[in-house]
């Protein structure tokens, strides 16, 4: 079982080489906000504290965000032999296939998999072959159940399960394609027993509930969310 940890670029200043010891890879970027797409400087900062593999994490994109992701691909696919990238945008998936077919290792992210895991498995397996996808991301039992019949492997996120997201950022009070000061900071715990069955955590522009690591025959990797203290 591979052990990985997920970091947003602005969290790089909060982790040390010691904290990252024992992980096989680091996820760098963000699945929900395009402002978390790593810059070349972010990869350099990470390389200074972590010598292992990096998995680039991407979100749904506006046109401008997709352009930035295209620039990132151009740079990394020229330099890196094994470029693994978590994809949550259909446009990015198309770009990877049409322009870089076979050079990158796309992984279907939690947003796309929420949509596609329920689809017919013959279709899903053929779709994954067509786009060179060998693994997908998940964070809850219902999605694992839906993936029954899927022929690839699953990377499982814990200790938080994704519940919802908005492109209108609660911190920025504007859309995520607007200039961002990365003011989202630490998770915010939200309660209301009349509406919520359990506490909800606001992290960036997405909402989560706690989950636990599980055992499942498809899971080959765990992805731990790095939590910055409030």
């Amino acid at each position: 079982m591979e052990r990985t940890i997920s970091l947003a670029p602005f969290e790089l200043g909060l982790v040390t080489a010691e904290r990252l010891k024992g992980y096989d890879a680091v996820y760098l970027g963000g699945e929900f906000c395009e402002n978390r797409l790593p810059s070349p400087a972010d990869y350099k900062r990470l390389a200074a504290i972590f010598p292992g593999r990096v998995v680039t994490v991407t979100s749904i994109f506006s046109e401008r965000g997709l352009g930035r992701a295209a620039d990132l691909l151009k740079k990394h696919l020229g330099e890196q032999k094994d470029f693994e990238i978590v994809v949550n945008d259909w446009g990015l998936l198309r770009l990877l296939k049409d322009k870089y077919g076979g050079k990158a290792r796309p992984v279907l992210g939690r947003l796309i998999i929420w949509e596609i895991a329920r689809m017919d498995k013959a279709f899903l397996n053929s779709f994954c072959r067509e786009y060179g996808i060998k693994s997908v991301e998940a964070d809850c039992e219902p999605v694992l159940k839906q993936l029954s019949g899927y022929k690839g492997s699953v990377n499982y996120h814990a200790p938080y399960r994704f519940r919802s997201t908005s492109r209108y950022c609660p911190h920025l009070k504007d859309f995520v394609s607007s200039p961002c000061a990365r003011s989202c900071g630490a998770p915010v715990r939200l309660k209301n027993p009349k509406v919520l069955g359990e506490d909800l955590f606001l992290m960036g522009n997405a909402y989560f509930t706690p989950n636990r690591p599980v055992k499942h025959r498809l899971i080959r990797r765990t992805v731990e969310t790095f939590i910055r203290e409030p």
């Binding site: 749904i60 506006s62 965000g65 945008d89 259909w90 446009g91 949509e115």
Partner: peptide
């Protein structure tokens, strides 16, 4: 519900 936010995604579905 299919989430199409950029022209690349539009192209994906047009294809």
């Amino acid at each position: 519900l299919a989430l199409c936010f950029n022209s690349g995604s539009l192209g994906f579905f047009r294809d």
